[in-house]
Amino acid sequence: MRTLIRYLPLALLAAAWEAAARLHLVSSLALPPLTDVIGSWIELIRDGELLVNGLASLYRAAVGLALAVVVGALLGVMMAWFRPANTLLSPLVEIFYPLPKSALIPVTVIWLGFGDGSKILLIFLGCMLPVTIGAFNGARGSEQVLVWSARSMGASRLRMLWDVVLPSAMPELLNGIRTALALSFILLVSSELIVAQKGFGYLIGSLGANGSYDAMYAVVLTVAFLGFAADRLYLALTRRALAWRYDT
């Protein structure tokens, strides 16, 4: 009941959408009725188009993001713990961090063409720096006394990085990865909208070009929902991983 009241505004918006389209308050071209959109969605599922393109997109996002997390976390911890790495890398991070990542779309296409490679590279490059900065801030914030404790109990320097610095950095690192997750969806969809032969963005673009707007809406809503669901799932996992931070 409570959830019902909580999400009632969304239901109201959906109802308003349906009504506006059915009563021809807006052109049904610009806003096909929600029920039609749902119909097209079922159609898209049935002929497998949504699945094929969706899997292509998710594969790109997953590989790019995984690379970004591994490389980004390593770079961040190194920057926090080795002064030379910090001196060399921090100016580069400072320059590239504010770069609107979407500007890299044409370059990745020049380098790797229209297929998976260019999207993966784009997502990797775009998502790496938020992870790096999260790992850097987290690792730098690890308490001196914890490091000392581990060392006095016989941990080597490398062991100490793994046992103390990485777990200390975890909250901020996980936060950086959350930013990267959101960014990966944005980059994925925009690069696929601009140039692609398959994927969600491609499907949206080609359906739009054919004028099948109800199907286009169906894909747009699917992508939006997937992004939302990925974030919620990630949050739930994070809460479990960081259970030690919360008392009771």
């Binding site: 969304l10 918006l13 071209l29 969806f185 939006a224």
Partner: peptide, 24 residues
Amino acid sequence: WFFDPIVSVGFPMPKIAFLPVVIL
């Protein structure tokens, strides 16, 4: 009551996907 679900659902969505709709 009105905005909370919209924000909590809308924030994590990749809104860029709505770009063709906005063009339309």
